[in-house]
Design a protein around this nucleic acid. Sequence first.
DNA 1: AATGAATGAGAGTTCATTCAT
DNA 2: GATGAATGAACTCTCATTCAT
Lengths: 182, 182, 182, 182
Amino acid sequence: MLAATLQVLRKHGAAALTTTRVAEVAGVSVGSLYQYFPNKRALVAALKLQYFEQITGRTLAAIHAARDLPLAAAVAHIVGELLAAKRDNRVMALALHSSLAELGGRAWVRQAGAMLSDPLGELLRDAGVARSDVAARIVVSSIEGVIAAALESDPHALDDPGLADELVTLACGYLEQRRRAC
Amino acid sequence: MLAATLQVLRKHGAAALTTTRVAEVAGVSVGSLYQYFPNKRALVAALKLQYFEQITGRTLAAIHAARDLPLAAAVAHIVGELLAAKRDNRVMALALHSSLAELGGRAWVRQAGAMLSDPLGELLRDAGVARSDVAARIVVSSIEGVIAAALESDPHALDDPGLADELVTLACGYLEQRRRAC
Amino acid sequence: MLAATLQVLRKHGAAALTTTRVAEVAGVSVGSLYQYFPNKRALVAALKLQYFEQITGRTLAAIHAARDLPLAAAVAHIVGELLAAKRDNRVMALALHSSLAELGGRAWVRQAGAMLSDPLGELLRDAGVARSDVAARIVVSSIEGVIAAALESDPHALDDPGLADELVTLACGYLEQRRRAC
Amino acid sequence: MLAATLQVLRKHGAAALTTTRVAEVAGVSVGSLYQYFPNKRALVAALKLQYFEQITGRTLAAIHAARDLPLAAAVAHIVGELLAAKRDNRVMALALHSSLAELGGRAWVRQAGAMLSDPLGELLRDAGVARSDVAARIVVSSIEGVIAAALESDPHALDDPGLADELVTLACGYLEQRRRAC
DNA sequence: AATGAATGAGAGTTCATTCAT
DNA sequence: GATGAATGAACTCTCATTCAT
């Protein structure tokens, strides 16, 4: 059913996301839909959660794995994994970036950011970055901003290898300055 | 009426933005609303346009004015003006960042980004930044990402003087690396 | 204003006949419209009345003038005048036949029929037609039916000289049988 | 639901035919109405079609059955069947004649006429009537005109046995003249 | 468990009519 | 007298949700 939701979202947009259509695409009845999800909001929330967990989980693992690398290498690894995670969930990424904002706010984005910022903050602190918690939030939100803009202007942006380079340059350039600030 | 739209958007969110409610808040009848706007979409579009023009106009002017400054000073000036413009339209900024995405897509955001990226690209090229057009897009979108995230977690974020510093550090750090890349 | 009503009716149909549009086409304000007509129904009624009077008046005169002619000649004269009257009010005829039915019923058609049937009945009685009142109604309604159908399938039907012939044949054939029935 | 539509049409006229009222009279909700008819026009169209098929079907059969009768008997049979068909659908006939003109034009009447005129034309040609196609149209439209006028002045007109006689006299008188014209 | 017809509140939009200017 | 902005009741249509089968 989540797959059907995604498909409807991609093909017809958020405005056309009706429970009837989702059920139809999923090959079940509306009644069955309501046996698994109490209401439409829950359906969308589940989709968000799934995306959220995929991306956040993998990125958190990357942050963890990068703990002992030098800062530049750590950033490169994390950014690479983040992009890979989005690439592996490209349909979701596109649907959510383009139209799921229209479905119940962007609070989940904030939540995802917070979840990543904390462990990243620790990593940065260990790497000698000043005010590491703030720095982590800046890094995460700037990267998300660039990716969002890229996806909006080109749905295939995630396949562009240059994007990773830019993001690493962006993050490292910022952190470099922050490190000197120590 | 645009003010009423804004108020409804702020207080109740995009899902509760109905023509009846807007008219009610504006203290007029629905009929009058439709005398000035052909339909609901036009109402929202007018609001977006107003915001768009305020922010874009002022930022473009700042880019122009910063043409002959050294890069760091130019960035500081532009970021300062952008934030000031958003501060002067804070209610709009908040409403649009939180819920207007839900109303007809984010195409206008892309458009605004494009409008700023071109002149900024020229400025960067003159300042000796490699691949200045790409760099401009990265700078614009990362800054927007940081501001969006900041506003989402704290509606008063625009008043925090530290935000400007962070944005300047972010942009300069990135551009520094790009300059060396020449 | 009646002319404007007619024009709107012809160009856009009965569904698009709004007071605002009529006023616009007439080059006055809605307010002025309401100074001359208490409401929209009255506007349409006035138009109907005008048509009604044109056609009925001229046809009544024709009936009167045909009093002393032999039956066949009388019928030819009356039919000729009726068609001529419609031709002289062709725009109205077309508008009323195609769309004014949609505006407040066809009672006026019945009324017009009644108005013609009585004097025609007298003429027929004098010509020795049995049950002349019934005969008159049959003649009038059959002629109206043929004209209506003709106009519906071809707006230029009134210009076809063959139409008059057919109508005369129709009426005379019927009346011939009725006369023998004496 | 079609029955409810008919009832509303009869009791309150075409102007009062609203989806809400039809649903109410039908004892269902508006939603259900829209489950069976995509929109209001379709509801009315279905009603027209039903009437159209009843009348046209039976009359066509009558024309077919009358192929080998002498002309006068053929006409009598056809007229009798047409009237019987209308009598069997009296409520519909009344509703459609008085107010369905107000709902989407009279194109269907023309269509029905055309459908009958062609086979009738063949029958007339075989019976030696000159310009049988024109004659068929005249006969059909004059008969429809008389019936329409009769129904407008008296809803029980269809029950008057005299009506059939008049129609037969009308049609035969006309065709007699046409036959001589050979 | 699954179904899908039924529901009905509520959305956007129109337009005849009024009345202060 | 003329204006036309303001009104708001009424309309068509949608869709999340329920529940008898």
